[in-house]
């Protein structure tokens, strides 16, 4: 089974409070923030690796399985791919582009071209990138490909014949399980990296993964330099034209300070009279 994982490089999400808005609201400024892989995409890499290995030997993919990572971005984004290769992915594809010339629709169309070339059995990706939070690409990609999709996955079970997956999605009040015939698109949420959220019928049921995306061990970092990483211009995919333009960015209004109430009756009274919440 071949899995394609699209990755995006984003400004350090742990310091999102340092993002500024350019004068006039023209764009978001992330100067001085460290570029990091989008966390949901890291979870997608982790998911793809768990699907294609025996968890007791996470250094090797199962026979016949492979994980390809791809990104559209600046040349430096190859670092993000290298990191995924060091985690265990087999090969990387960088299509050089500037983030400013991409939108969700164009990215999905471009990914559809990558899928045509690479012919994966499954696309696993983050549910959204933490910079734009658009949450569109997985859905549009599935539509363009005519593939089934499941978004916000918190669990994935690969069938023994590798022809379908059962995807758990957290919703209000419980978990919905969807069965998808492959090929398919899955977008993952943060719980997908819980210790037992992926089942592939090879990793023993008793195996507990460490919570979160794995760290690339140093020998794998060294080995990753020998893995193939192809670079090509974005234009080589033959798609163009953004449909979204940003009108204006505004910082959210600063929150007002709260107040302290002396007892429950006052709380109730204020909730009713001032907050109009009751």
């Amino acid at each position: 089974m071949k899995i394609l994982v699209p990755l995006k490089r984003t400004a350090d999400p742990d310091n999102a409070n340092k993002i500024k808005i350019a004068p006039g609201g023209a764009k978001v400024v992330t100067d001085g923030l460290e570029p990091k892989p989008n966390p949901f995409d890291e979870y997608a890499v982790e998911s793809a690796l768990r699907l294609t290995e025996n968890g007791t030997n996470p250094k090797a993919r199962l026979a016949g399985d492979s994980v390809v990572v791809a990104t559209f971005g600046a040349k430096e984004a190859s670092q993000t791919l290298r990191q995924a290769l060091a985690m265990g992915a087999d090969s990387g594809l960088l299509f050089e582009a500037s983030d400013e010339n991409l939108d969700g629709d164009l990215v999905a169309r471009a990914l559809a071209k990558v899928v045509e070339r690479e012919k994966p059995d499954l696309v696993v990706m983050g549910k959204q990138a933490v910079d734009g939070d658009s949450n569109q690409v997985g859905q549009i990609l599935a539509e363009r490909l005519g593939w089934p999709s499941a978004t916000f996955a918190m669990s994935i079970e690969l069938s023994q014949d590798k022809k379908s997956v059962i995807v758990g999605r957290e919703v209000d009040g419980g978990v919905i399980k969807l069965k998808l015939a492959l090929p398919a698109v899955i977008t993952v949420d943060l719980r997908i990296v819980a210790p037992k959220s992926i089942t592939n019928h090879v990793t023993p049921q008793t195996h507990n993964y460490q919570e979160g995306a794995r760290y690339a061990p140093l020998p794998m970092i060294m080995a990753a330099k020998k893995k193939p990483l192809a670079e090509a211009p974005f234009a080589s995919l033959g798609v163009e034209g953004v449909k979204t333009s940003y009108v204006k960015f505004e910082a959210p209004p600063a929150r007002k300070a709260g107040i302290k109430v002396k007892d429950v009756p006052e709380l109730v009274q204020r909730l009713r009279a001032e907050a109009k919440a009751l």
Binding site: D14, K36, S78, Q79, A86, Y215, L218, I221, A224
Partner: peptide
């Protein structure tokens, strides 16, 4: 892309990995 502090891409990946491990663990 490589600099004095990260002479090769392996150094850079190593730094990122250790930094991320250090911050989380």
């Amino acid at each position: 892309m490589d600099d004095l502090f990260n002479p090769t891409s392996e150094h850079r990946t190593l730094r990122q990995t250790i930094r991320s491990f250090a911050e989380k663990e």
